[in-house]
Design a protein around this nucleic acid. Structure first.
Lengths: 196, 196
DNA sequence: CTGTCATAGTACAGATCTGTACTATGAGGT
DNA sequence: ACCTCATAGTACAGATCTGTACTATGACAG
């Protein structure tokens, strides 16, 4: 058991939080490690103790962030009503999220761009999308749709598209359009035979 | 008429080309003006003559790039067969584009992220999406679909989503999924009454 | 009380980047 | 022939960033 500092909040957690907020708001390249340490109320010595290089901090922050997003999504869509609403509840959550002031797109996607697909970041991002597809596929299956895997893939495109368009256009229309498109695709996968 | 250098290729154009290639491959922050000038076979003096600051070069490059993309899209979808194929020809083009090796996502979107929505870049990006929607709306109208404006908005989400997912996953599945989703949405907007 | 060690704070080395200054060259108009 | 000026090449100033070194402090175990 390590001897804790006066402040019981783990230094490592404060560093991760500061990094997440600053990187998201300004981008990985625009934020220096000094600024992160200052916001976390930590010293650079501590930062480099927990994260040997800035890239390690980026990767650790992003992995944790991805985990948190997926836990939040699963938790908040687990007991949605049966049927199509079971899938659309994912879109309802995302619409709310994207409409928040200061929304600047998906942090995972942004970090991939910022770091130009640094290997660890790229891996986290692939896993991030995979988990999205798995959640969507599960919800589609529960709703009784045809071809849940293919549909999940299509729904993910709507989600990522809405995220990007919202970040650029700065309004909430994209989220609503994504929900409506998702509803129509769900209908198509209920009434239509699987067309090839 | 300015007195030209020995090489008739305008220095400005070479700088824009070098900037486009390097920024796309490595990101705006990762490329220095020295590298751009060297690749263009130009001097920094020339670079700063045409572009007072690096940001001006970024903005000029991106505006030109957006123009080129849209001209290319309009040109190559103008004489597609009537009906749904008129819209899907846009997706066919994009599938080909996204499947090219070295595809790293939409340069416009990436630059917005790189520069954290620098005002001129953000404006170019908004215009970029607007022109996408206008083209899609036109093609949907020509194909005889209902609610062309709303459908165009949905189709844009599929395009941007496919771009992002392709860049992260590195395979061509996303483009094909987008095309199929577009086809299904087009069907829904032909046979269904406009649901509100 | 005393020793250990995580920590904050600061300073610094080395690298890199933007933007400017200066020199030399050569093409084309007059 | 001469002059103008866009250009390439280089050097440099100032700023910033990463990662390391060093000092001082204070909490906790024994």
């Amino acid at each position: 058991m390590p001897r804790g500092p006066a402040n019981p909040t783990a230094v490592r957690d404060r560093l991760l939080t500061a990094a997440r907020e600053l990187f998201y708001a300004q981008g990985v390249h625009a934020v220096g490690v000094n600024e992160i340490a200052a916001r976390a109320g930590a010293s650079k010595l501590s930062l480099y103790r927990y994260f040997p290089a800035k890239d390690d901090l980026v990767a650790a922050m992003l992995a944790e962030h991805s985990d948190r997003i997926h836990a939040w999504l699963v938790r908040n869509t687990a007991d949605a009503p049966a049927g199509a609403d079971r899938v659309l509840s994912v879109f309802d959550l995302l619409i709310e999220w994207f409409a928040q002031p200061g929304y600047r797109g998906c942090a995972v996607v942004n970090t991939v761009t910022d770091t130009r697909a640094e290997p660890r970041v790229a891996e986290i991002a692939r896993r991030h999308l995979l988990r999205y597809r798995e959640l969507l596929e599960t919800r589609v299956r529960e709703a009784g749709g045809r071809e849940p895997r293919a549909l999940a893939r299509q729904l993910l495109l709507l989600i990522e598209g809405a995220s990007v368009v919202t970040a650029i256009d700065g309004d909430a229309q994209a989220g609503r359009a994504a929900r409506r498109a998702a509803r129509d695709l769900l209908s198509a996968h209920r009434t239509e035979p699987a067309a090839r």
